[in-house]
Protein backbone atom coordinates (compact mmCIF):
# COMPACT_ATOMS: atom_id res chain seq x y z
CA UNK A 1 0.00 0.00 0.00
CA UNK A 2 1.57 3.29 -1.09
CA UNK A 3 2.10 6.01 1.45
CA UNK A 4 0.06 9.13 0.75
CA UNK A 5 0.03 12.68 2.02
CA UNK A 6 -3.36 12.14 3.64
CA UNK A 7 -2.05 9.09 5.52
CA UNK A 8 0.80 11.20 6.81
CA UNK A 9 -1.48 14.05 7.80
CA UNK A 10 -3.32 11.70 10.14
CA UNK A 11 -0.30 11.09 12.39
CA UNK A 12 2.03 13.32 14.47
CA UNK A 13 5.12 14.82 12.76
CA UNK A 14 7.53 12.44 14.41
CA UNK A 15 5.42 9.49 13.30
CA UNK A 16 5.34 10.91 9.78
CA UNK A 17 9.11 10.73 9.52
CA UNK A 18 9.02 7.21 10.93
CA UNK A 19 6.56 6.07 8.27
CA UNK A 20 8.59 7.70 5.52
CA UNK A 21 11.80 6.20 6.85
CA UNK A 22 10.33 2.71 6.95
CA UNK A 23 9.44 3.05 3.26
CA UNK A 24 12.64 4.72 2.14
CA UNK A 25 15.09 2.52 4.03
CA UNK A 26 14.66 -0.70 1.99
CA UNK A 27 14.92 1.25 -1.28
CA UNK A 28 18.09 2.98 -0.14
CA UNK A 29 19.46 -0.27 1.20
CA UNK A 30 19.32 -1.65 -2.34
CA UNK A 31 21.61 1.16 -3.51
CA UNK A 32 23.95 1.50 -0.53
CA UNK A 33 23.60 -1.39 1.92
CA UNK A 34 26.27 -0.20 4.34
CA UNK A 35 25.18 3.46 4.45
CA UNK A 36 21.41 3.02 4.24
CA UNK A 37 20.69 4.01 7.85
CA UNK A 38 22.77 7.20 7.65
CA UNK A 39 21.41 8.16 4.23
CA UNK A 40 17.83 7.61 5.38
CA UNK A 41 18.53 9.74 8.43
CA UNK A 42 19.83 12.54 6.24
CA UNK A 43 16.95 12.39 3.80
CA UNK A 44 14.42 12.46 6.63
CA UNK A 45 15.55 16.02 7.35
CA UNK A 46 13.90 17.02 4.07
CA UNK A 47 10.28 18.05 3.57
CA UNK A 48 7.73 15.26 3.69
CA UNK A 49 6.40 16.27 0.29
CA UNK A 50 9.87 15.76 -1.19
CA UNK A 51 10.19 12.43 0.55
CA UNK A 52 6.83 11.29 -0.83
CA UNK A 53 7.96 12.28 -4.29
CA UNK A 54 11.12 10.23 -3.85
CA UNK A 55 9.03 7.21 -2.91
CA UNK A 56 7.11 7.61 -6.16
CA UNK A 57 10.09 8.28 -8.39
CA UNK A 58 13.11 6.00 -8.26
CA UNK A 59 15.08 8.48 -10.36
CA UNK A 60 14.39 11.26 -7.90
CA UNK A 61 15.33 9.02 -4.99
CA UNK A 62 18.53 7.91 -6.67
CA UNK A 63 19.68 11.46 -7.33
CA UNK A 64 18.99 12.52 -3.75
CA UNK A 65 20.73 9.43 -2.42
CA UNK A 66 23.75 10.23 -4.58
CA UNK A 67 23.80 13.75 -3.17
CA UNK A 68 23.49 12.44 0.36
CA UNK A 69 26.35 10.00 -0.15
CA UNK A 70 28.59 12.80 -1.45
CA UNK A 71 27.76 14.98 1.56
CA UNK A 72 28.21 12.07 3.94
CA UNK A 73 31.62 11.17 2.53
CA UNK A 74 32.77 14.80 2.65
CA UNK A 75 31.58 14.99 6.25
CA UNK A 76 33.33 11.76 7.19
CA UNK A 77 36.53 13.01 5.58
CA UNK A 78 36.43 16.08 7.82
CA UNK A 79 35.71 14.24 11.06
CA UNK A 80 38.79 12.51 12.43
CA UNK A 81 37.80 9.00 13.31
CA UNK A 82 39.04 5.47 12.85
CA UNK A 83 40.03 5.35 9.24
CA UNK A 84 40.27 1.86 7.87
CA UNK A 85 41.80 1.44 4.47
Amino acid sequence: QPLTASMLAAVPPQEQKQMLGERLFPLIQDMHPSLAGKITGMLLEMDNSELLHMLESTESLRSKVDEAVAVLKAHQAKVPSTNVG
Binding site: P13, K17, K38, T40
Partner: peptide
Protein backbone atom coordinates in the same frame (compact mmCIF):
# COMPACT_ATOMS: atom_id res chain seq x y z
CA UNK B 1 33.26 22.95 24.08
CA UNK B 2 33.72 20.26 21.51
CA UNK B 3 32.25 21.48 18.24
CA UNK B 4 32.61 18.26 16.27
CA UNK B 5 29.44 16.56 15.25
CA UNK B 6 30.72 13.07 14.68
CA UNK B 7 27.36 11.45 15.24
CA UNK B 8 25.75 13.32 12.37
CA UNK B 9 23.70 12.24 10.56
CA UNK B 10 21.31 10.41 12.87
CA UNK B 11 20.99 6.85 11.68
CA UNK B 12 17.58 5.48 10.83
CA UNK B 13 16.93 1.93 12.00
CA UNK B 14 13.80 0.15 10.74
CA UNK B 15 11.45 -0.70 13.58
CA UNK B 16 13.12 1.78 15.93
CA UNK B 17 11.20 4.99 16.73
CA UNK B 18 12.81 7.83 14.78
CA UNK B 19 14.06 10.63 16.97
CA UNK B 20 15.94 12.64 14.35
CA UNK B 21 13.68 15.64 14.80
CA UNK B 22 15.00 16.10 18.32
CA UNK B 23 18.52 16.45 16.97
CA UNK B 24 17.85 19.19 14.46
CA UNK B 25 19.56 22.42 15.44
CA UNK B 26 17.86 25.62 14.38
Amino acid sequence: SNGTNASWPPEFCPGVPWKGLQNIDP
